Simulated assay, not measured.
Amino acid sequence: MSVDVWLLIGACAAVTALIKGVGPVALGGRPLPARATGVITLLAPALLAALVVTGVAGQDGHLGLGVEAVGVAAGGAVALRGGSILVCVVVAAVVTAGLRAIG
Results as ranks from 00 to 15, higher is better:
residue 86 L to R: 11
residue 4 D to M: 12
residue 99 L to F: 08
residue 3 V to A: 14
residue 70 V to E: 01
residue 88 C to G: 07
residue 29 G to F: 09
residue 29 G to Y: 06
residue 80 L to C: 06
residue 27 L to F: 11
residue 100 R to V: 14
residue 6 W to G: 00
residue 42 L to W: 04
residue 70 V to I: 13
residue 52 V to H: 05
residue 53 V to Q: 10
residue 51 L to H: 14
residue 2 S to M: 08
residue 50 A to R: 10
residue 32 L to H: 05
residue 17 A to Y: 12
residue 7 L to R: 15
residue 6 W to F: 13
residue 73 A to K: 03
residue 28 G to I: 04
residue 49 A to P: 06
residue 14 A to L: 15
residue 68 E to K: 04
residue 34 A to G: 01
residue 101 A to E: 01
residue 84 S to R: 11
residue 15 V to G: 07
residue 86 L to P: 00
residue 17 A to Q: 06
residue 65 L to H: 05
residue 94 V to M: 13
residue 76 G to V: 07
residue 44 A to S: 10
residue 55 G to L: 09
residue 94 V to P: 03
residue 73 A to C: 11
residue 95 V to G: 01
residue 27 L to G: 02
residue 36 A to L: 15
residue 34 A to I: 05
residue 26 A to W: 01
residue 90 V to E: 03
residue 29 G to R: 11
residue 46 A to L: 13
residue 39 V to N: 01
residue 55 G to S: 08
residue 23 G to D: 06
residue 7 L to G: 04
residue 86 L to I: 11
residue 89 V to R: 00
residue 18 L to P: 00
residue 59 Q to W: 12
residue 83 G to S: 12
residue 78 V to I: 13
residue 57 A to Q: 10
residue 87 V to D: 04
residue 82 G to H: 04
residue 2 S to Q: 11
residue 35 R to I: 02
residue 50 A to M: 09
residue 47 L to S: 10
residue 66 G to F: 01
residue 37 T to E: 13
residue 45 P to G: 04
residue 86 L to Q: 13
residue 93 A to P: 00
residue 9 I to R: 11
residue 53 V to T: 14
residue 20 K to H: 08
residue 82 G to I: 03
residue 99 L to N: 02
residue 12 C to P: 00
residue 54 T to N: 13
residue 12 C to G: 02
residue 101 A to C: 07
residue 28 G to T: 05
residue 66 G to N: 05
residue 74 A to Q: 08
residue 30 R to V: 08
residue 60 D to F: 13
residue 32 L to P: 02
residue 2 S to N: 15
residue 26 A to F: 04
residue 86 L to S: 13
residue 16 T to M: 14
residue 43 L to G: 04
residue 9 I to G: 00
residue 18 L to V: 10
residue 43 L to Q: 08
residue 102 I to S: 07
residue 95 V to R: 00
residue 4 D to C: 02
residue 15 V to R: 11
residue 8 L to N: 10
residue 18 L to F: 14
residue 45 P to Y: 02
residue 94 V to D: 07
residue 57 A to R: 05
residue 1 M to W: 10
residue 29 G to L: 07
residue 88 C to Y: 01
residue 73 A to W: 01
residue 88 C to D: 10
residue 6 W to T: 12
residue 22 V to H: 06
